[in-house]
């Protein structure tokens, strides 16, 4: 093992902040992701992660900065709208669900990219960032003083997203659980499964906005699904899966940092790859358990 990597990592505050930001991102995405996976709605997560783009750009055009509630509102709205349009197309009978998903999210993404280029002068959002994020640059962006500590803004944003995701679980866990497992029972006992689903989709859109800067649109899908999938292979109850998600977040952010430093590649991609390696390990263990 090359010890210098570790020394460099631990001595540079930047890499600590980077790890913190990516751990927060994975934690934030993992929570709504868990419910999406058990509901068999992973592809709604895929659709949302692409279609928040026009919302972000429009929010930016209205407010003029990347850190305003307009961006969050716009993103949540466009993500939620996408899922609704997909459902509507599918229910109206002539377009199947998979095709409807493919049509709507690509259209939204295309609108986002066109808007981005149309107002290239006004929107300070790098098109590259849309596809693979730019945590390495974002970490050097604006800083905010918190308790005398100079914290990069991106760490606060991703931290906020993580708090949001976990707050959702803490507050309405039971509605989420019963709404996912048995929507009919939830409806019959007045537990508003449709509103619960809307909340879940809205929170997904919000955490994806935070993940957008860290890993970009496509890889945020990985962050939604990977931790949940490895949790699902290991655990028998949802709370345990959520615990596994947190563990996955910590390990994959540290491992991702190591991979990125060692191989000299994009940090977001490295975090995802480390997460995939974790999943493979869990999978191998679960296979052995089953064969025994």
């Amino acid at each position: 093992m090359n010890w210098e990597i570790w020394q460099d990592l631990l001595q540079s505050p930047t890499s600590l902040w980077l790890m913190l930001a990516s751990a927060f991102t994975v934690m934030a995405c993992g929570v709504p992701g868990t419910f999406l996976v058990v509901r068999r709605m992973s592809l709604a997560g895929d659709a949302i992660s692409h279609s928040v783009l026009p919302g972000i750009v429009i929010g930016f055009l209205i407010s003029g900065t990347l850190d305003s509630p307009w961006i969050l509102g716009g993103a949540a709205l466009s993500g939620w709208l996408t899922v609704m349009v997909i459902g509507w197309l599918h229910r109206s009978g002539s377009v199947r669900e998979d095709a409807a998903t493919g049509i709507v999210f690509t259209a939204m993404f295309a609108i986002g990219v066109v808007l981005l280029r149309l107002y290239a002068g006004k929107v300070d959002l790098d098109p590259d960032c849309v596809l693979f994020g730019n945590l390495e640059t974002a970490i050097h962006g604006a800083r905010v003083g918190v308790f005398g500590l100079d914290v990069p803004q991106i760490v606060l944003v991703t931290g906020g997203a993580a708090v949001l995701g976990w707050a959702m679980v803490g507050l309405i866990y039971h509605r989420l659980l019963v709404g996912s497992f048995d929507p009919s029972l939830a409806a019959l006992t007045g537990q508003a499964p449709r509103r619960t689903e809307s909340i879940l989709l809205g929170v997904t859109a919000l955490v994806v906005v935070a993940a957008f800067q860290t890993v970009g649109a496509v890889m945020s899908v990985a962050l939604l699904v990977l931790p949940a999938a490895s949790g699902l292979l290991m655990c028998r109850r949802v709370p345990a899966i959520l615990g596994a998600v947190a563990g996955h977040a910590v390990i994959s952010s540290i491992g991702g940092m190591v991979i990125a430093t060692w191989a000299g590649c994009n940090l977001g991609a490295s975090v995802v790859i480390c997460g995939a390696v974790l999943l493979v390990l869990v999978w191998a263990v679960s296979l052995r358990k089953r064969n025994r």
Binding site: I172, V178, D182, Q191, A240, I241
Partner: peptide, 22 residues
């Protein structure tokens, strides 16, 4: 679905909980 027998039975009692109850 990752739930246990007890979790399922407990779901029967959720009706009166409201949004934030447990």
């Amino acid at each position: 679905f990752p739930v246990t027998v007890f979790d399922v039975a407990l779901m029967g009692t959720y009706a009166g909980l409201g949004w934030f109850g447990r």
